[in-house]
Design a protein around this nucleic acid. Structure first.
Length: 266
DNA sequence: ATCGGTACCTGCACGC
DNA sequence: TGCGTGCAGGTACCGA
């Protein structure tokens, strides 16, 4: 499910939780909870009040009056305000008013409580919508990996995933297998602009609802209708009509137009 | 120190 | 109807 635009949408949709007090937490799955055992975490969370709610890349961090509750949605994680618990509900937060369910069929997501700001989040690269171009370009030049793999590397920039990496590369006219350090300045500029544009537009559209992504109030995004390459294998390129191809880069499906995104002319 | 490959888990679409 | 295969927004961890 969720990359930066989807996580941003979910984060905004739970903004109303600010100021609420946690009355109780029930963890139904051991797998999604990191660190201490469920009973211990529940006991520590009880009675704490929610302060600022912020997104860092694909992580949602709820600052409590003391400590931090960190949530990552993995591939299929959902936060739902109210509603009934289902087969894949792994955590239920009850507040002084209302409740929040964590649903995740594949259980790749996780929830973590820590007294200090989580190290995993602190280690992430800069926000792609905040990093200055010069810093983006300088960091990019240091990596000899393929550009697609670099965009997916959360230590490079945080929040870009498979959909938006492919969409940004298409907008920049760069082949996903191109070597990052060998990209010329003008192309790096186009990539930066493409990334910023696609993320901004996707946030405005409430994200991409590929199969089942919804925000905390059950609303779907509609940026999937604006995808130009992602999961469009065999369909004509919107610019030139050439059929979109799919290759594996870093074990992830990468969709591109073989004519608009040439491998050699970098 | 960077990398690429693999593991983790469930559900769905497809061909037979 | 069922079964096997491949694929899916994610990160962590391993050894080279």
């Amino acid at each position: 499910m969720p990359e930066l635009p989807e996580v941003e949408t979910v984060t905004r949709s739970i903004a109303r939780l600010k100021g609420r007090r946690i009355a109780g937490v029930e963890f139904r799955s051991r797998r999604i909870l990191r660190g201490a055992p469920p009973e211990r975490v529940s006991a520590r969370l009880e009675g704490r009040r929610i302060g600022a709610i912020q997104r860092y890349g694909k992580f949602i961090v709820l600052a409590l009056d003391s400590g931090f509750l960190t949530i990552h949605l993995g591939m299929t994680g959902r936060l739902l305000l109210g509603g009934a618990a289902g087969k894949h509900t792994h955590a239920i937060f009850t507040f002084d008013r209302g409740r929040l369910l964590y649903d995740d069929s594949r259980q790749f997501g996780c929830i973590e409580f820590s007294e200090e700001f989580p190290a995993r989040v602190a280690r992430l690269g800069p926000e792609p919508l905040e990093v200055p171009f010069e810093e983006f370009a300088a960091r990019l030049k240091r990596h000899k990996t393929r550009i697609k793999a670099l965009l997916l590397n959360q230590a490079f920039v945080r929040g870009v995933g498979n959909i938006y990496a492919d969409e940004a590369l298409f907008r920049a006219g760069i082949h996903p297998m191109a070597v990052a350090s060998r990209l010329r300045e003008a192309r790096v500029r186009r990539l930066f602009d493409g990334m910023v544009t696609v993320l901004t537009e996707a946030i405005a559209a409430g994200g991409s609802s590929i199969s089942d992504y919804i925000d905390a109030q059950g609303r779907k995004g509609f940026f999937q209708f604006s995808h130009r390459v992602y999961q469009r294998t065999g369909e004509p390129c919107v610019k030139c009509g050439t059929l979109i191809r799919r290759v594996l880069v870093a074990q992830r499906s990468s969709h591109f137009c073989p004519k608009c995104q040439r491998p050699q002319v970098q």
